[in-house]
Design a protein around this nucleic acid. Sequence first.
DNA 1: ACAATAATGAAAATTATATAACAATCGAAA
DNA 2: TTTCGATTGTTATATAATTTTCATTATTGT
Lengths: 290, 290
Amino acid sequence: MNEARLTISDRIQSQLDDLTRAESQLAHSILENYPASGLGPLSALAKDAEVSVPTVARMVQKLGFNGYPEFQAELREELKAKAKDPISKHDSWADGAPSEHLLNRLTDAVIDNIRHTLGQIDPEDFDKACALSADTTHNLFIVGGRITHTLAEYLFLHMQVIRPKITHIQSTSNAWPHYLLDVKEGDVFIIFDMRRYENNTLKLAEMAHSKGARIILFTDQWRSPVHHLAEISFSCRIVVPSAWDSAATPLLLLETMISSVQGLTWGDTKDRMEALEDMFDQTKLFRKFT
Amino acid sequence: MNEARLTISDRIQSQLDDLTRAESQLAHSILENYPASGLGPLSALAKDAEVSVPTVARMVQKLGFNGYPEFQAELREELKAKAKDPISKHDSWADGAPSEHLLNRLTDAVIDNIRHTLGQIDPEDFDKACALSADTTHNLFIVGGRITHTLAEYLFLHMQVIRPKITHIQSTSNAWPHYLLDVKEGDVFIIFDMRRYENNTLKLAEMAHSKGARIILFTDQWRSPVHHLAEISFSCRIVVPSAWDSAATPLLLLETMISSVQGLTWGDTKDRMEALEDMFDQTKLFRKFT
DNA sequence: ACAATAATGAAAATTATATAACAATCGAAA
DNA sequence: TTTCGATTGTTATATAATTTTCATTATTGT
């Protein structure tokens, strides 16, 4: 993927000395605010550079393009590539594997997903969601579906240590209506619903909502219907070159959330963690050392 | 003039909820590689988003523009402004959050973990592990511990669709010795053991090993003691600025493995997936569309 | 200074592009 | 189901953009 491709800007600059008066004006005008000016209509560019329309057309051909539209297409390609650039420095992640190896392709996709997702997240929303999750004056319910219950469980396992009053509900289970009996106004639901959105999850969300619960939703880029009920939604990009979706991006958000909530409740968490350590010591579940 | 401070991207995102099917497709297509895609011809954008040409024209008007050219002009203005912006703070992942925000710090760490981990993985080992997991002439056991059972479960849920003869064992459960009765020579174990290595997991691994099972281990950079018994080990970097470890890197490996195994067994998988689809249709578990 | 040649611009011809008008489709409510 | 309204797509028209042609103006070498 990493061809030593020279940009149009490069090409123009290298030729800058051999240009005639009008061409030079034009070249400088293109470089002035590159690439925006080149993406407008040809006539606008000509006017901007104070040269005639055909001058622009000819220059573009001199640069090796078949026409102005082709020139613009290339500019847009550059722009796309640039947007991805921050990480594309690594032509391959797994050394020793060709870049077409699934390891590299999937990793590329996941990193890309992360960037897109993070780029669209409002940090204030995120902080608010963390604050809600840290609020121990209300109950916290964590809800996952068929696949997403693993994410829910992951969050639950950590939150369990961090704070009390927490419940994990699997929406595919028949038992969930029972849990809802205890829901009080102001309780917080963290709901996971990724594509192939589940009817059960939606129903559960509706009931929780009607009881006055506040909903934080983790969904994909197409958004579960639950998002109409949610106070805060996080839509994650999940598409990878696979028949399945990737949970990596939502997991990253979860882990950040866990860390953040832990920070907010540190006083309590500390005690709880110590208590947990003691329990583990007694049950000899873990090894003291490797 | 404060209206002008909202980028088109912002405006689209804020309206994302109230969009119809075609509009939503289009919106996502625009955001997909913003702003490049919006700077091409209207018809190209329409084709890209798989909507009709007038849909694009209508959407642009909905966004408050007098026509597509006006919309493009605004995009170019944004581009110019961005290029001139002295503080192009695009070195952070979550725009709008300071680089010290946990979202950015944790994401940095996770990407770093991925890079390190992938760099140390031998692609041949990886391919071998996939081949082993795809081999349906033997049973496949997936084993997780207290936290890692979520990863195990995630793998199990997918593998379950891809191949038969598969079992998920939670090493913290009392029941695991029973599972081992069925283990035959040549059976494959995929074991998860991250730090705070669990005694149960080690014992389970030892018993499986003594029965002639082949072990694939997912562990952290310090390596679970199980790795002495493992035929193939993947050590993942898991450290992030948090009191907890990150499961993102092992998850990425898992997802790659799932995709790879699926490729290896595609003939069978296809049938199994179709059967699963039918089941889902009958139980009305999922919604057909958003 | 004067051809000869290249460079440039004005306007017409051509092509592509966006808008408008209309028709089909889909989904919700009766 | 059937109907109504909203949404989306198809076709046709108008508009804008690009390319071509050709006349004009600079530039260079003799």
